[in-house]
Structures are given as C-alpha cells and as structure tokens.
C-alpha cells in the first residue's frame, strides 16, 4: 500500500472576551489579588464561576481569598509540554486557597515528587509582568502567603490564548497513487467498480456506493468549464491579483469536476462550456500536488454544448 503523510499544524491565537465575572477575576490577578464568587449554597468558588453549578443562577457575590492554600491532590509532570507554566519537571495540583471552598488547578514548583504531598501548604508565585490572564500566577511554591505590591490598571476584558497543535495528516492509498501520478505529470483517476464513474481525485470510497474506487484511468489534461465565479475580492493568502476566475473543470473522461483557476484570457471571456487545457508549471517545480497545473487556459476548441455538462452542475 502506498502511504503519504505530512505535518498539519493547527495554530491560532484565540481572542476571548471575558465578560463581567472572568474579567473581574483576571483584572484581580493582574493586580495580584485573587477573588472568588459565592455560590447559592454558600461555597466560595475560586476561580469564580459565572453560574451556580447547582441552581444555574447568575452569581454576583464576590469574596477576596488568600494567595496561599492547601494542596488537595497532585500529579507529577516529568516532561513539561509547550505552553505549561514551567519548563522543568513540576507538579499539577488542585489547590484550595484559604477562604475558598473549591480548588484551582495550577502548577507547583518543587524539585521532585518527593517534595509533594496532599495537604501541603503552597503560595502563589506571581508573574513578573502580569497581563490579566491565568498565567499571572506563574505557579505555586511551598510556603505561606507573603505581602505583595498590588498593581493597578485598566479593567481586563480580553485574553489572548494561543493554541498550537501538531498533527500528522495522511492521504488515502487511492489519493497517494493520484498524487504520485501528479509528480510525473499524469492525471490518474479511478473508476468505481459499482457505478463505473471515474473519480479524480480518486476516493477512499465511492461516495454513492461506499466501496473503494479501484481501476486506474489516466485522464487527459483538457476539459470543459462547467461553472465558475469571478473572484473580485482580496483575502488573506491570495496568490493572484483579482479579478480572476475559479472554475469547475470537468476533464474529458471524468465524471466529476474539480475547482481550478482559469487564466490566459480576460476574466470576462470565461463562460460555461468553455474548453480549456492545463498550463503545467515547469517540470522541476512538480510536487505531489494538483498545483503542478498552474492553471487552465482556453484551448481554442469550440464550446461544449450545454447538454454535455449539464449533469455536472
């Protein structure tokens, strides 16, 4: 079986609006103050919750709590991961701050797991440069609360949260054969053994029959524009200056069209039924990608009659 895989990175800095409760909590952290909220059953929640877990009622009764507390439970992290509070081994702990009735999850900085125990006393180690996020608590460390210099500023209303996740994306074996064909400048589709339709790119399963497409069918690099739009709008990551045409191209012998660019003529000249041929990039630039075809351009043949492609709209 041919297999192909490549990294897929999902990375984004999310911009989160906090609302009144979380905003006040984050503002407090920025000012080196920890505030909880009293629930309908009298429990003080730290971090504060916006709605009572039992009654679902909106909560508004604020309570300031201490910056030291007791470890309720913990787990050791021998190999810290990206984004975690410490870069050397540490413990995660649920810590109940003095004055709170619920525990907050954070890191405790100790040299090894032998220094951790449930019931131990820990205090906040504040970040040097607080910004209004949970990271304003750099971590916890063994000990009792100490006086801190409060800071002050504008209320915190937003927090930016970077997310970085790495994946390995794999192609199906059918897709891999097609991609390897593209590397050689060939357009390899496959025929579904049940409905006999030719798919390009081929599919792990024929979408109407649920069986893998099998027989390979090499297709020519020319076809018909079934339908299209003229892109007039600039957007992020765009590679050509508008206006240009994104069209569905039905290769001769294929039973399904794919989207590609139509260049080599004025955008206003492109029409449904126009015959086009592939404009390949220079061979030395070829990769396992349909982008080896830079675009399609008019072939000069007469337009295809509407009936020949009307079933592909």
């Amino acid at each position: 079986m041919t297999t192909l895989s490549a990294p897929l990175n999902v990375e984004f800095d999310y911009t989160r609006s906090l609302g009144p409760v979380l905003g006040r909590f984050m503002t407090g952290l920025r000012d080196r103050r920890i505030e909880g909220i009293r629930g309908d059953d009298g429990r003080v929640h730290v971090p504060p919750v916006e709605y009572d877990p039992v009654t679902a009622r909106k909560l508004t009764d604020w309570v300031e709590v201490a910056s030291a507390g007791t470890v309720q439970t913990w787990a050791w992290v021998p190999e810290p991961d990206e984004g975690q509070p410490l870069t050397h081994p540490f413990a995660w702990a649920l810590i109940k701050l003095d004055g709170a009735d619920t525990a907050m999850l954070h890191a405790v900085d100790v040299p090894g797991p032998e220094h951790m125990s449930t019931g131990m006393r820990v205090r906040v180690r504040w970040a040097a440069e607080p910004v209004g996020s949970i990271h304003d608590i750099a971590c916890f460390e063994p000990g009792e609360a100490v006086e801190t210099e409060p800071t002050q500023g504008e209320p915190v209303t937003m927090v930016t949260t970077p997310v970085r996740l790495g994946y390995t994306h794999s192609a199906s074996s059918e897709e891999a054969r097609y991609l390897n064909g593209l590397l050689e400048g060939r357009l390899l589709g496959q025929r579904c053994p049940v409905c006999q339709k030719v798919y390009i790119p081929p599919r792990g399963a024929c979408p109407t029959d649920g069986v893998p497409t099998v027989d390979e069918v090499e297709l020519p690099d020319r076809g018909t524009v079934t339908t299209f739009c003229i892109v007039n709008v600039p957007f992020l990551g765009q590679r050509i200056t508008p206006p240009y045409v994104a069209a569905y191209v039905l290769l001769d012998g294929a039973d399904i069209a794919f989207q590609h660019l139509i260049l080599g003529c004025d955008a206003s000249e492109v029409r449904m039924g126009m015959r086009v041929k592939a404009a390949w990039r220079p061979r030395e630039e070829w990769q396992r990608s349909l982008a080896n075809i830079d675009h399609f351009e008019p072939s000069g043949e007469p337009d295809a009659p509407f009936e020949t492609y009307s079933q592909h709209l």
């Binding site: 999310y14 989160r16 906090l18 979380l22 909590f25 984050m26 971090p47 991961d81 990206e82 984004g83 975690q84 509070p85 907050m104 999850l105 954070h106 890191a107 996020s133 949970i134 990271h135 927090v159 949260t161």
Partner: peptide, 8 residues
C-alpha cells in the same frame, strides 16, 4: 478555556 486550558 479561560482559567484552566491556557495552562495546558
């Protein structure tokens, strides 16, 4: 995603 997730 506000008080726990950002610590990973």
């Amino acid at each position: 995603p506000y008080t726990v997730g950002p610590l990973w």
